[in-house]
């Protein structure tokens, strides 16, 4: 009698998605563990206040799992999550504007660690964040997916519904404008 075939130690995202669609909640939990930090970094980059990142990450996963049937593997699951995250953040920003609640910016929020060190290290980040806020959403998303997440243009284009050439153009426009803003 041959022993049962060992289960793959690290299931792929596709396998976890299929398992979740079959009702396996732990598959969904594993996808959250696997991608939540990258998603949080992306959301932080797109202008989400630190204090709201948890809620936005959670909402993004909920929307993603509800709409997972629409995910056809056109790009990586993580990239798809980030496009959903971008929409979740934009919706939240609209609500904040309507309710006139302005989330505290990093510059006025209490931060852990040495304030001076934090201020010096955070100066460039704050300038970049401010520059990103002024970019059109497409340029901002392309820039972050490329510069922060290290994705290829093909992957970015598939996720954002554009062509690799257009994604490249968006990236270069974004870089040009951000450099102008930061100098």
């Amino acid at each position: 009698m041959t022993p049962a075939e060992p289960v793959a130690a690290v299931p792929t995202d596709a396998a976890l998605i299929a398992a979740w669609e079959g009702g396996d909640e732990q598959a969904a939990a594993e996808l959250v563990r696997r991608h939540a930090r990258a998603l949080a970094r992306f959301l932080g980059g797109t202008g989400a206040p630190d204090m709201d990142v948890d809620d936005l990450v959670q909402e993004t996963f909920i929307r993603a799992f509800r709409a997972v049937a629409k995910f056809r593997g056109q790009c990586r699951f993580r990239t798809w999550l980030m496009t959903i995250g971008g929409n979740v953040l934009r919706d939240a920003q609209r609500r904040w504007r309507r309710s006139r609640l302005v989330p505290l910016g990093d510059d006025v929020r209490a931060a852990d660690g040495d304030p001076h060190e934090h201020a010096v290290a955070g100066e460039a980040e704050a300038r970049l964040a401010a520059g990103l806020e002024r970019l059109p959403p497409m340029q901002r998303d392309v820039f972050l997916l490329r510069a922060q997440q290290g994705l290829e243009y093909n992957e970015i284009a598939a996720a954002l519904g554009t062509t690799p050439g257009a994604a490249r153009v968006h990236y270069h426009h974004a870089v040009k404008r951000l450099k102008e803003h930061m100098t």
Partner: peptide, 22 residues
């Protein structure tokens, strides 16, 4: 750009997040 959002990401409690989503 890679540092942006890093603090929020580090603070994220993955297990709690996973349970909340489930």
């Amino acid at each position: 750009a890679q540092r942006l959002g890093a603090r929020a990401a580090e603070r994220l409690d993955l297990e709690r997040m996973a349970q909340a989503v489930v």
